[in-house]
Design a protein around this nucleic acid. Structure first.
Lengths: 189, 189
DNA sequence: TCCTCTATAGACCGGTCGGTCTAGTTGATG
DNA sequence: CATCAACTAGACCGACCGGTCTATAGAGGA
């Protein structure tokens, strides 16, 4: 059992890495297994539900990782605009570090499977809601009048901008979106 | 040759329909062929490049369809806010009409393939640019100071909101995003 | 009429998919 | 040391994948 965490976690992280880049249907089990240096039996031992169950774990893992990044960015910011721009920066860094091969770790799977596959789309939904909650927490602290709504708008804008940016191999649109949102104050309603 | 348009177009439209819902990798040729009631030979007669070439045509087709909808919405609007809300309305209608099974016809394929598959991601990019151009045209006419930037922000927000909405089976976030963007004026920068 | 070229039709192919199954290894516990 | 459960290992399976190939149908021109 000493190896449990290691092997299982390696599978989850490898799966997250690949799904992040090419989505659920674009990645085969054999590729995950090969990269994680694990035989097939291991996968079905840890994830009797097969590929979907592994993907569910990978989504939750990726959601937690990004939530922690948001949290850290928020903790370092003193005002609303600075925080929103920092979120844009996080996003841009990710895009550029992967040469635009990876964008949002949830969005691809969400679009491929929602709403037909309950399991996967719910996992994505929970990830989005987690992020919105964390963002809203900081926005509230920094004086936003409608933190939930504003967090949703910010996340949605960054998500869409990322998709467009990847087709262009140019992150400018993400920075622009963040800047614009940072500048305007959302009117309540 | 009299049937050329019919069969070929039926293939393209069917492919667009299915890719729209489940993305590129999520749909098999056999499914497209079955739904379009066409044998395999026909596909490779019209699209020697196979699935990617068919997808390219489907993307261009879907992009044109939505561009025409944007154009029509713009022509009917007298002010900037009204136009942006109309775009949100278009999006919501599409989501609800398909019970959230279909969102943006380009985004899923874009996320699955960009930037590795040149062909498909460029086709998506062109679609996005087409839409941004049409939106910017109307925003300029309606008095926007920075129509291109504003069009990008609006499109990105709607794209992202759509992805989130599909996981929730609730279009509220799309309407909220459109309303918020309609209300604030973008400061130039 | 016959020829040709486009379009339709679907059998067929090797490869890969996700998933199952059985055997071996390991480590904790009695 | 024996036992047993957790884990590792990979051969194997049927189904389906995208793609190729050959045969046929049918319209238009010579």
């Amino acid at each position: 059992m000493a190896d449990e965490r290691t092997t299982r976690d390696r599978l989850v992280e490898t799966a997250a890495y690949l799904f992040h880049r090419r989505g659920f249907h674009g990645v085969g089990l054999s590729e995950i297994l090969k990269l994680a240096k694990a035989p097939k039996g291991v996968l079905y031992h840890h994830f009797p539900g097969g590929k979907p169950e592994l993907a569910e774990a990978a989504i939750a893992f990726a959601a937690d990782v990004f939530a922690a990044q948001i949290e850290a960015a928020g903790a370092a910011c003193q005002c609303r605009g600075q925080f929103i721009e920092a979120l844009g920066g996080l996003t841009v860094d990710d895009l550029e570090a992967t040469q635009f091969k990876a964008g949002c770790p949830l969005a691809t799977i969400a679009l491929e499977t929602a709403p037909d596959d309950q399991r996967l789309s719910q996992a994505c939904r929970q990830g989005f809601d987690l992020w919105i909650g964390v963002i809203a927490g900081h926005l509230g602290r920094l004086g936003s009048a409608a933190p939930e709504r504003e967090a949703e708008l910010v996340l949605a804008s960054l998500e869409g901008a990322m998709a467009i940016a990847r087709t262009r191999k140019d992150a400018r649109i993400v920075l622009d979106a963040a800047k614009a949102l940072a500048r305007v104050g959302l009117v309540e309603g």
